[in-house]
Amino acid sequence: MDQGEVLEHVALRARSAGRPVVVGISGFCGSGKSTLARHMVEALPGAVRMRGDDFLDPARSHLRSADWDGVDRRRLVSSVLEPFRGEQQGDFRRYDWAARALGVPEPVPRADVLVVDLIGLFHPEALPSLDVTIWCDVELDVAVSRGMARDRALGRRHEALWTDVWVPNEREFAHEFMPREHAELLYASSQ
């Protein structure tokens, strides 16, 4: 699907749901998740974004794991996704990368659509809390090339993390949890 078709599908789902809808966008590192999420929020009235990076554990996200355990899915689900879907009051804490700790409590957003973009999102811990699942359908080698180029442009030197940690994590997660197969929509990202 292209971006227009994805937006049309999400807008239709949001109108027919009768409650707030959570849209999960996942894919390999560098596949275009954040770009799609930003475009979606700009294009859909009543949509807000929850950055997946706010739910990474900085120590564990830089370690090898077969299930992307550096993604704090439990905190995301319990403090944001479930209260949002249930239209309940609640607070959550983003990870503050500058302070290297969880930030101050913030209220769970109120909106018609919550867009979450995150690696390792299509996992049994989070899938039941996602109403629409979108996979940025880019081959791993292409996504890695894009992600490494983005990091270099931002002055980040993560080559060893990419080759020694993130790419092996992506391969193992894809093999173990088959996230692409859990996607309702496959988005052909050209980033």
Score class of each variant (00 low, 15 high):
residue 1 M to Q: 08
residue 6 V to G: 04
residue 6 V to W: 06
residue 7 L to T: 07
residue 8 E to N: 11
residue 8 E to Y: 05
residue 9 H to F: 11
residue 12 L to I: 11
residue 15 R to M: 10
residue 17 A to E: 00
residue 18 G to A: 03
residue 19 R to G: 03
residue 24 G to L: 01
residue 24 G to Y: 01
residue 26 S to R: 03
residue 27 G to M: 00
residue 28 F to A: 15
residue 28 F to E: 10
residue 30 G to H: 00
residue 31 S to G: 08
residue 32 G to I: 05
residue 32 G to M: 02
residue 34 S to T: 15
residue 34 S to W: 00
residue 39 H to M: 14
residue 40 M to T: 12
residue 44 L to Y: 01
residue 44 L to T: 04
residue 45 P to G: 07
residue 46 G to T: 09
residue 46 G to D: 04
residue 47 A to W: 02
residue 48 V to C: 08
residue 48 V to H: 03
residue 51 R to G: 12
residue 51 R to T: 13
residue 54 D to C: 11
residue 55 F to H: 04
residue 56 L to P: 06
residue 56 L to M: 10
residue 56 L to T: 07
residue 59 A to S: 11
residue 60 R to N: 05
residue 61 S to Q: 10
residue 61 S to H: 14
residue 63 L to Q: 15
residue 64 R to E: 11
residue 65 S to I: 09
residue 67 D to I: 10
residue 68 W to D: 13
residue 70 G to F: 04
residue 71 V to P: 04
residue 74 R to Q: 13
residue 75 R to D: 02
residue 79 S to K: 09
residue 82 E to I: 13
residue 83 P to V: 08
residue 83 P to D: 05
residue 84 F to D: 06
residue 92 F to T: 05
residue 93 R to M: 08
residue 96 D to N: 13
residue 101 A to F: 05
residue 102 L to A: 09
residue 104 V to G: 12
residue 105 P to V: 08
residue 106 E to Q: 15
residue 108 V to R: 01
residue 108 V to K: 02
residue 112 D to Q: 15
residue 113 V to E: 02
residue 113 V to D: 03
residue 118 L to F: 02
residue 118 L to E: 06
residue 121 L to W: 00
residue 122 F to P: 06
residue 122 F to W: 01
residue 124 P to Y: 11
residue 124 P to I: 10
residue 126 A to I: 08
residue 127 L to S: 09
residue 129 S to M: 07
residue 131 D to E: 04
residue 133 T to F: 05
residue 136 C to Y: 01
residue 138 V to C: 06
residue 139 E to S: 13
residue 142 V to I: 12
residue 142 V to W: 06
residue 142 V to L: 11
residue 143 A to C: 09
residue 148 M to W: 07
residue 148 M to H: 09
residue 149 A to K: 12
residue 149 A to I: 08
residue 155 G to E: 08
residue 156 R to S: 12
residue 156 R to W: 11
residue 159 E to R: 12
residue 161 L to H: 12
residue 163 T to D: 13
residue 164 D to C: 08
residue 166 W to S: 01
residue 166 W to D: 03
residue 176 E to L: 14
residue 177 F to H: 11
residue 179 P to A: 01
residue 179 P to L: 00
residue 182 H to S: 13
residue 183 A to W: 01
residue 184 E to D: 14
residue 184 E to Y: 05
residue 186 L to V: 02
residue 187 Y to I: 02
residue 189 S to V: 06
residue 189 S to R: 03
residue 190 S to K: 11
residue 191 Q to I: 12
residue 191 Q to G: 14
residue 191 Q to F: 12
